[in-house]
Amino acid sequence: MTNSLNIEQNLAILDRMLLIRRFEEMLIDLDQDHDFGHYHLYIGEEATGATVVESLIPTDLLLTTWRNHGHLLARGTNPGRMVAEILGRVDGYNKGRGGTLHLTDREAGFLSTSGLVGGAVGLAAGAGFALKQAGEGNICVVFFGDGSLEEGVVFEAMNLASLWSLPVLFMCENNNSGAISAQEGGFPSSEIAASQISDIPKSLNINSKLVDGADVAAVHTVVTEAVSNIRSGNGPVFVEAYSERWPGSRPLWPEQATGVTQVASAWDESLLTGEHKEWIIEFDPLIRFIRNQLAEGLFSKDELFDRDRKIQTQITEARAFGEASALPDPQSALDGVFAA
């Protein structure tokens, strides 16, 4: 799809995608040293999160799932404080109480990260309700996986959003378009009877779109139109952004299945060797974007290396910040069950 984004926007999206990729790669390494709680990575879905935020304004609200790191980083949260939270340290966004599965950043507009499948979608309808009452043109975006459509609350929330014309963007990230099966020891064995997920909201009269979630330009076009529709009071929109699941997200615990990303593999396939090289060539959204943008002359190879290096330095610093942060005092856990 042709790219309606200007140079600054494309570069901002590139930086976000690189930031997410390098952050997630670092976490796999960090887990070897620190053995923190169960976590999920956003690798392979970066194009969606990094692009959706381009169409939002700072006063919009967001919610997400356990696959949240990319959404938060795309929205500009501090990677060092994220590492601190993932390690359960005092400088973390939630002071170590929530951890990777529940990272939230109020300043960035995140209400919640739900560890339960479908858990955030009901809240999203509620955020939309309050934003509509306030009447200031803000909207709510909720990211969730294809599995969420199997939970009853998601159907109920979409029905309410449609009936009451709530300003909600239902951003469904369907990473199941590739074969992921229980037979491979994969997780999960989620299933839905509908032939297309976006048919389900359609039956509730919700404007529904299907888009290649690994295609930055396509996501931008669809989401920009959706957001403008929602902002002008036309009710919710459902976007199904499909992607080919990253092989490292197939096992229960993330694995560095495709190796540390080499940006040069966008033009030099001889750098790729492992069993998943086809995934990188065909489906890796970062490599795809770099390949396209090089062809369009957005940046030179040297500029790309430069940006990647800067981001890697930022991630190294973020890791150091998180690791240097202290564990919270155990007794502090007893505070703050109720709001004042």
Binding site: G88, R89, K95, G96, R97, G98, P328
Partner: peptide, 10 residues
């Protein structure tokens, strides 16, 4: 009587 916190120390 608190939600179970994430951090190992808590």
């Amino acid at each position: 009587d608190i939600p179970v916190p994430y951090s190992p120390s808590l």
